[in-house]
Computed example of a mutant assay.
Amino acid sequence: MHIGFDVRTPRAMTDTQELADLVMEGERLGFDYTTVFDHMVVQRSLRAKYNNSDEGDTDIGYGRCHEQVTTIAFLAGRTRALRFVTAVMVVPYRPPVLAAKMLATIDVLSGGRVTVGAGTGWIKDEFEALGAPAFERRGRVTDEYLEVMKLLWTEEVVEYEGEHIQVYGIGLEPKPAQRPHPPLWIGGMSGPAMRRAARLGDAWYPMMNDQSKPLDTVDRLQAGIGRLRDLAEAAGRDPGSIDIALRVAEHGHRLSPTASDGTRRLFAGGDADFASDLNVVRDLGVTAIDFRFEHQRAEVVVEEMQAFQRDVLGRL
């Protein structure tokens, strides 16, 4: 099972050296991959809320970060083995031919170290600011854009006529270093997102702490994986061909040990609990999992990453 990390400090979102130092430290500690999120502009307030939560009512600063794909290109040049996961790329934000070209270029230049985490997005304000396709059509747009991107990465000449994108007789060279293409991890817990993962994904990549549909207990995670397997069979795919990758935003003593269903919450508690839960999710079929390390100060983030490597991964 591959272990990834997501580092969040106010300065690292915009400070070149702090961001590079944190990512290079993660590589030195032996993490397999890091994640980079995707927001474009700062909204002082939002009309939309993530999963109907209270998050995002005031000055949340989602846009205070570097552009995702450019950031990965820079960080790939500062590292040697670390993989980079777009977590997740909001697919409708970029024309699919351009996105396919950018990602293929980074994959070639990095020696095949890109994983494309993909989703539909949730901030209507940002869609409008970017002139992206209509927010209400983002699911179908995402499907078509991903289909075109996969064709461009794998076919010599692409013909595609969809409702939102049409391409005729074009090709993309050079192809990505990874064959047939960079792994495609589909994020989301909704019905359409899971069907998208079952039909198009190399992995399903949900957030364990999703407030509307959490996967934070053994039973909930088992049920989610079971549903994904059923959808894969319905799509005519081998369920075993689709990996399970998890995002964990909150963990450790910050979490209540009891979930809303009254059972034990995964990745709550101390180091021994954490290590035990990693073994549990691996046995359930999880092939990759990443954890967020977030603090106001970078040195605290580094200390937490070092402690995680020593006291949690050291127990495995």
Rank of each mutant, 00 (worst) to 15 (best):
G4F: 07
R8Q: 14
T9K: 11
M13V: 00
M13T: 01
H39W: 08
R47A: 04
A48Q: 14
N51Q: 15
N51S: 12
N52I: 00
D54P: 08
I60K: 08
G63D: 08
L75A: 00
L82K: 04
V85S: 00
T86Y: 11
V88S: 09
M89K: 14
V90I: 15
V91P: 05
Y93F: 15
P96V: 05
V97H: 06
A100Y: 10
A100D: 07
T105S: 14
T105A: 09
I106E: 07
V108L: 13
V108P: 05
L109P: 03
T115R: 14
V116S: 02
V116P: 09
D125A: 13
D125Y: 06
E126V: 07
L130K: 09
R140I: 01
T142C: 14
L146W: 11
T154I: 03
V158L: 11
E159W: 14
Y160W: 12
Q166W: 11
Y168C: 07
P174V: 10
P176I: 03
A177V: 00
R179E: 13
P183C: 03
W185L: 11
M189W: 01
P192I: 03
A193K: 07
R195Y: 04
R195S: 01
L200I: 04
W204Y: 09
Y205M: 08
M208I: 15
D210C: 07
D210W: 12
L215A: 10
A223C: 01
R227Q: 14
E233S: 10
G236A: 09
R237I: 05
P239L: 02
S241H: 08
I242H: 09
A245I: 03
A259P: 12
R264Y: 06
L266S: 06
F274M: 15
N279I: 07
N279R: 15
L284P: 01
L284H: 00
T287P: 01
H295T: 01
E303G: 13
E304L: 12
Q306C: 04
Q309C: 08
R310F: 08
D311N: 15
L313E: 09
L313C: 05
G314M: 08
R315Q: 15
